[in-house]
Design a protein around this nucleic acid. Structure first.
Lengths: 386, 386
DNA sequence: ATAGTTTGTGAGACTCGCATACGAACTGAA
DNA sequence: TTCAGTTCGTATGCGAGTCTCACAAACTAT
């Protein structure tokens, strides 16, 4: 039930979401955007300023008609540090992230090829302790983004296709017990979507899909400004939606999954089958560079583009989402590839009332995901339903 | 922003949702389920009882320890009548539905084959006026479910694949102007999903997909107890997600859409290709009846089952939803078909933390959709975010 | 200097949920 | 029949939060 105090929490969350969506804003603008009054906004932000979460920036110049200069509010660069962690089959990255999105004290460590669950937990906790020591301040929580299917409520690993040794690991509890700081676990693509919403290309957008294309394919969905989680954290396993029921066998056991047609290995195999020069070491950006002067490379690229766009068009049909943010290999492939995917996706989808499908590039590195992992903590600790 | 009065609205909505999800409940039980107190519940329901939306049922028997008998609350059978309309390419159905889900004054009228947009609007408004006259009471609003892509916010038809004459028609305004009652337009499968949530197999479920399989395939999604609408009402066009990129050509111009593999015509074509007895007039329930004593029919049925299940498994991968309610042809095909689809869907999907995929049958007639259309009005007028 | 404008804050009114208490209605045993 | 025990439903005062209104602070232009 919404009591007065819960209403206060909801409104505080609304103010913070508005800040994330729009950047630094003075109180009157916050009041306008939230449909509230200056007095109420002042009442809400004063404790946040006292806590050090927010701070006042330099006063803006007065308008042509004069008036007291407005002082924009924004997240303090030093306030509210939280821990962020990205756990992938090959290794772990850790960082400290402030509520404003500043990323510091980044560490990276790799797992040996034959690592077991115990080795993973040891390396993960060691990396986090190291980052905490470098940060030197108390963290408000630790967000963990994991490249596997996750039970968000329980904080456990459900199925790690690329690293089966992790199945069933209660990673959130492990980290929380080791560090003494509350830890929250979620899927990497969902964290990535949160990162896009708060700090990336999804800022100010109400609904979009944040898609990762690399060795695997995954996605996180933002609907109406909030992260979509399926039942107990399932969902977003879009890489294993079938788009070609008689297609090649996927490692998941089904045929013609989007992932098996459009992941890095598929691109590689196509390049080698076409006998492209340097196919052994060719990645997507290399192929994009090669395509203008090699017809065979252009054909391989066009096929890959269509495969990526096919999955995007399907998502648009099913979800009605109009914006797709591409991370991973496409993020480093440049504007021509983005435009080609967008055109191909538009050709394969209907006209929608929300306007034509948009495809934009995210980041190739993992900063968006680290920031998203941090956002998991912000979401819980500030009771903001991102 | 959540003011005290908006908090009151939200809590009233919460109480109504709890009633819909659980059936008639006495005040103490409502308090327990909503995490509130008897006093607060009393404060909320008293005006609803005065308005005639709710009524008190016969007192329950006291418990073994005695005590004042509790009087369950439920929606009045006479109170809060709203109009419901289902507009399909072949005709229109209208009805009056109470908040408790009682459907009365049903009318049906068919469109001639060569009908134009003007003819549709005339027949639609005439049917509604007839229903209103039969109801004899003032309606609180009219909900319109349309078998086409709609722009929910604008209340217009975006793309009616099976009836292109309707493209661009502002149906909500037309009905509202003609009847003088507020009208709300949405897609038929979304209304159907609302009907399942409030009155059908989705009662008490937080997330599910309501799927229609017939001449076309569509779906509405309930996430966390609320209807999912994409950007400006798009989304749910799942029938045209590609599951076989080299498959047969669909009427939408793409190849291998789920719909072209698993709709009524596909079943029909497969039955004729297999030379089944009476293939010309064979429908799904006929095929189910024939399969046990005809191996060829069993093969056709298995192929169709797999095609239906493939799309369901894909939805589960993408959305993480664990419950699928099948309407249309499968709803009349009986338990064996349901079980076969469920088994096939489970085989094609991963284990999810939310438990195995469940497939249940909805209604073969249009009552669920008419009730859902009525729920569109309840949602708006009572400010309940269904 | 002064009027006009905008920002930020303080005081009181208002609304709603919550804790508490009390009458109403029922059971079962003395 | 009486009375204690239990549960239901409501009346009352309190607290938390937003909203309205008013006012000081800070700036521009005349």
């Amino acid at each position: 039930m919404v009591s007065a105090s819960l209403a206060g929490e909801l409104n505080r969350a609304r103010v913070l979401k508005t800040l994330y969506a729009n950047g630094p804003l003075p109180r009157p603008e916050l009041a306008r955007l939230t449909g509230s009054t200056r007095a109420t906004i002042g009442q809400i932000v004063t404790p946040l300023l006292d806590d050090g979460l927010l701070e006042e920036l330099e006063p803006l110049a007065s308008g042509v008609q004069g008036g007291k200069p407005a002082r924009p509010l924004w997240f303090s660069d030093s306030g509210w540090p939280v821990g962020a962690m990205l756990v992938l089959p090959q290794g772990v990255k850790t960082a400290v992230v402030t509520a404003g999105g500043r990323v510091t004290a980044v560490t990276a460590s790799s797992f040996p090829a034959d690592v077991d669950a115990d080795g993973v937990t040891r390396r993960v906790t060691a990396a986090m302790r190291k980052t905490m020591a470098r940060a030197g301040v108390a963290l408000h929580g630790i967000g963990i983004a994991l490249g596997a299917m996750v039970d968000t409520e329980a904080g456990t690993v459900v199925r790690a296709g690329l690293a089966p040794v992790l199945d069933g690991l209660p990673l959130a509890q492990v980290v929380q017990a080791d560090t003494g700081v509350p830890a929250y676990l979620d899927q990497d693509t969902r964290a990535q979507a949160l990162g896009d919403l708060l700090f990336g290309a999804g800022r100010g957008e109400s609904s979009f899909a944040s898609v990762y294309v690399g060795a695997g394919i995954g996605a996180g969905f933002i609907f109406e400004g909030a992260l979509h989680r399926g039942a107990r954290g399932a969902g977003g396993e879009v890489g294993h939606a079938v788009v070609d029921r008689d297609g090649p066998l996927c490692r998941c056991g089904r045929r013609g999954c989007w992932e098996v047609l459009a992941n890095r290995q598929a691109l590689h195999a196509a390049a080698q089958a076409a006998g492209l020069p340097g196919a052994a070491g060719l990645d997507l950006s290399g192929l994009v560079a090669l395509a203008p002067r090699d017809a065979a490379a252009a054909r391989v690229l066009a096929g890959y583009t269509d495969s990526v766009a096919l999955g995007i068009a399907n998502l648009q049909q099913v979800l009605g989402v109009g914006l797709f943010i591409l991370h991973g290999d496409p993020a480093g492939a440049g504007e021509p590839f983005r435009a080609a995917v967008e055109v191909a996706a538009r050709e394969q989808a209907f006209a929608h009332p929300g306007g034509p499908t948009r495809v934009v590039l995210g980041t190739a590195d993992d900063v968006a995901t680290l920031r998203g992992a941090a956002a998991l903590v912000l979401s819980k600790a500030l009771h903001v339903a991102f």
